[in-house]
Amino acid sequence: MSEKTTVVEKEAIKYEGLFSVKELYQLIADWVNSKGYFPIEKFIEESVEKEGKVITAKLEPFKKLTDYAKAIIKIEILISDCKEVEVTRAGKKQKLNKGRVVIEIKSVLETDYEHRWEMKPWLYVLRTIFEKYIYTPFLSGFKNALREDTEHLKEQIKAFLNLYKK
């Protein structure tokens, strides 16, 4: 089995108020593309309820760093009580959404994702030695880069949501 190491623990960004669902989703998609991650939308659910729309999305963009290591950012989005409203901003009428947003972000570094080092017991032992003594500097470099990417994404989302705060 491949090994998954949590690099950044799950942290939630919470927001309530005006925002644009489309723009928020676009921001995440653009960020994923610009950083060279492959966009994987594992699960998306959108339902219309009495209190407003409920949108649940689980995104798992990943980036193959080498044949051995892969960076994965797990993004869970929950938007609830989402209603469409019309507001006037800078003298212009604009259609926005009003609701609650919870975005949880966690990042994981997956090693041996091609399952090459697990075929035989001696290979598994060799892999442990390889990771511990030879590949460590590379792995810590990957972890630092993934940590930076995750923090950057969080900052981007927070900045985006702050734009709508009054």
């Binding site: 998306i44 959108e46 339902s47 219309v48």
Partner: peptide
């Protein structure tokens, strides 16, 4: 390949 799942409730 990994699969993706979509759900929708509405019109």
């Amino acid at each position: 390949t990994p699969s993706i799942n979509i759900k929708h409730k509405g019109i």
